[in-house]
Nucleic acid binder design. Structure first.
Length: 302
DNA sequence: CTTCAAACCTGTGGGC
DNA sequence: TGCCCACAGGTTTGAA
């Protein structure tokens, strides 16, 4: 039984990041940074200005909006610049009383000129990062320059379902790899990829080029449903490593059908869920509902 | 151009 | 008890 427990780590995907964005928004928008402090330089490793340059450039800036695409969120600082954040595997953005104890995993801290609650970027595994960056043209939307290459996520207006379908079936890869490819569709990680595939009754190894239009449509519907339901539940989170802006854990984990359920009965057919090694991680699927594709032969041309 | 996999990182838990 | 190692995984980078 590998079902995630409250002590396991679960990475923030689109629903969790959106929960953070919405929670942070009302606490920081309209406020001006009094001090910016980088406690671990790795937190700003992608910012060419370095820790000191980053801190100096953030001082005096005002948070205007909180936006998100896929798993990235950012705070617009003016028309041309933004503070971009990725939570990585264990990142949190926490708002609280400025004089509360500094936990050992706080990587960056911002105080505000109004003397109110501060903002802390906490990240145990340090895969997340912050950077101050230019705004640029992304996929049908203005976004921070470093993420101009990622695709729209399926919950935003800029997402083009026809374009996604065309690009998906044109790929020469397995369907789960495609779902995790942020330049094709953003916001989906390992958990929701498995959940969407279970819901759409598709095996993770299915070659994308063999997907029929109805299957692509079913898959996209499944992705949207899974993300939307998780968002309603406040994001999946199993332990203290991931909490929302107010420090509350989510509770969507009870509705997972595939992820982390090795050996447990499928909720549709009771066949034990299996776990496969995949891309140096795990894929969970129902061996009966999600049939492994037969060996596929390329079409003969001519 | 595309696809793929190593590397980055640290806390946890199982095995011995 | 304590040590070691596998595992968790999003993204970048470089190789093929």
């Amino acid at each position: 039984m590998a079902r995630p427990t409250r002590t396991e780590v679960v990475v923030p995907e689109l629903p969790e990041v959106e929960t953070v964005r919405a929670g942070i928004e009302r606490h920081v928008v309209g406020r001006t940074v009094a001090t910016a402090e980088v406690l671990n330089p790795r937190a700003v490793r992608r910012d060419p200005a370095g820790p000191d340059g980053f801190a100096a450039a953030m001082t005096g800036r005002t948070f205007l909006r909180a936006e998100r695409r896929g798993k990235y969120l950012w705070f617009a600082l003016d028309d041309s610049e933004a503070l971009l954040a990725h939570l990585g595997m264990s990142g949190q953005l926490l708002v609280g009383e400025p004089d509360r104890p500094l936990s050992p995993h706080v990587r960056a801290r911002f105080t505000f000129t109004d003397g109110g609650p501060d903002l802390r970027f906490t990240d145990q595994r340090t895969f997340g990062h912050l950077m101050l960056t230019e705004i640029a043209d992304g996929e049908r939307r203005l976004v921070p320059e470093p993420i101009a290459h990622i695709a729209a996520d399926p919950l935003e207006a800029a997402f083009d379902a026809k374009d996604f379908a065309a690009r998906l079936v044109h790929k020469k890869t397995q369907v789960k790899r495609a779902l995790l490819d942020q330049s094709l569709i953003s916001g989906v990680g390992n958990i929701y990829a498995d959940e969407a595939l279970w819901r759409a009754k598709l095996h993770w190894a299915r070659p994308t080029e063999t997907l029929k239009p109805a299957e692509v449509s079913r898959l996209l519907d499944a992705v949207r449903d899974v993300l939307t339901e998780a968002l309603k539940a406040g994001g999946t989170s199993f332990d203290a490593l991931y909490v929302n802006v107010n420090g509350e854990s989510g509770y969507f984990d009870r509705s997972l059908h595939a992820y982390g359920r090795e050996g447990e009965p499928c909720d549709r057919c009771a066949t034990p869920i299996r776990r496969d090694a995949f891309m140096n991680r795990s894929s969970y699927s129902c061996p009966r509902c999600q049939r492994r594709p037969r060996a596929w032969q390329p079409p003969v041309v001519g």
